[in-house]
Design a protein around this nucleic acid. Structure first.
Length: 292
DNA sequence: AGCCAGGCCCAAC
DNA sequence: GTTGGGCATGGC
């Protein structure tokens, strides 16, 4: 169990951190509100807090966080108590593709993001690209999220509540340039306002197929988006999102027909079992590097 | 310039 | 139950 040591006011260090590389964690497509700074550190907002993190050797330095912040939030958010070394070893056994993927993304961790934020973020993500998704998510936070404390001279905003987005009309979102996703966001927010967000979070305790069925009941949430929400927002690690990059790697490196999504899913369940959510993330990050 | 992007909806089989 | 056209927009 690694503990936070206070270095100075609002600055802590976590010692003996393994299987954690900031570039891997924040650039592997799971989150959209973390940005790389000129010095190589990363700044992001989650849970109403803003923090800057930097990895140096086996130390993780966190600026704008107290030991209490770490114990009550960031430790959980960064999934610090999970042994990713064991996961990587299990996934790599007898699979040369996975072995390379794991080496390439050796410091990936699956963040425990807020479920509601992942619902809207991955609705926005559909048929788009990561730079544009980040702009859309940041824009919706800046326009409709609660203003938080400034950090390093820049304004920070929380992700907006469902009730706020539920009160909008599509015209309100048009300046964010989200395209046809506007009505998905508003309809889903209206369905989630009130008790819906609590029910979404409770889907973390459902079995995977019940959770998927419930999450897919929202407008704009199909199989791929649902699996991302489950994996990144509900800790449903048996999810295996199949986007265009995953289809590429499954066809080019595992020999599947590009349209055989069923076959890919069944293969993942069989080969990677309960760890296939982690497997998917190593493969996705790998695919984006090696498959042009 | 034109293709593509962490796809989904909906109608037509 | 499956398939395919249409979809807003910007990154590259």
């Amino acid at each position: 169990m690694n503990r936070a040591e206070q270095l100075e006011e609002r600055k802590i260090v976590i010692h003996d951190v393994h299987d954690f590389e900031t570039d891997h964690v924040f650039d592997c497509g799971q989150c959209f509100r973390w940005n790389r700074q000129n010095d190589g550190s990363w700044t992001g907002t989650a849970g109403g807090r803003t923090v800057n993190v930097q990895k140096s050797g086996t130390e993780l330095i966190m600026d704008n966080a107290s030991p209490e912040d770490y114990d009550s939030f960031w430790r959980y958010y960064f999934d610090m108590d999970r042994d990713y070394g064991v996961i990587k070893q299990k996934l790599s056994a007898g699979d040369d593709v996975m072995k390379k993927a794991v080496e390439h993304g050796s410091g990936i961790r699956i963040l425990k993001q807020d479920a509601w934020e992942t619902v809207i973020s991955f609705i926005i993500s559909q048929n788009s690209n990561i730079p544009r998704i980040k702009k859309g998510v940041e824009g919706i936070c800046r326009k409709y999220g609660k203003k938080l404390e400034r950090y390093a001279g820049s304004e920070r905003y929380d992700f907006p509540e469902a009730e706020v987005l539920a009160s909008l009309e599509t015209d309100d979102l048009s300046d964010l340039r989200l395209g046809y996703r506007d009505e998905y966001i508003i309809e889903t927010s209206r369905a989630a306002a009130g008790d819906g967000c609590r029910r979404i979070r409770a889907a973390a305790e459902m079995n995977a197929s019940d959770a998927e069925a419930y999450i897919r009941s929202f407008k704009g949430v199909g199989p791929k988006v649902a699996n991302c929400i489950m994996l990144f927002g509900l800790s449903q690690y048996e999810s295996f999102p199949l986007d265009v990059w995953m289809k590429k790697i499954m066809s080019e490196l595992y020999g599947f027909d590009k349209k055989d999504l069923r076959g890919m899913s069944e293969f993942a369940a069989e080969r990677f079992g309960k760890l296939r959510g982690f497997a998917q993330q190593y493969l996705f990050y790998y695919a984006r590097e090696v498959l042009q």
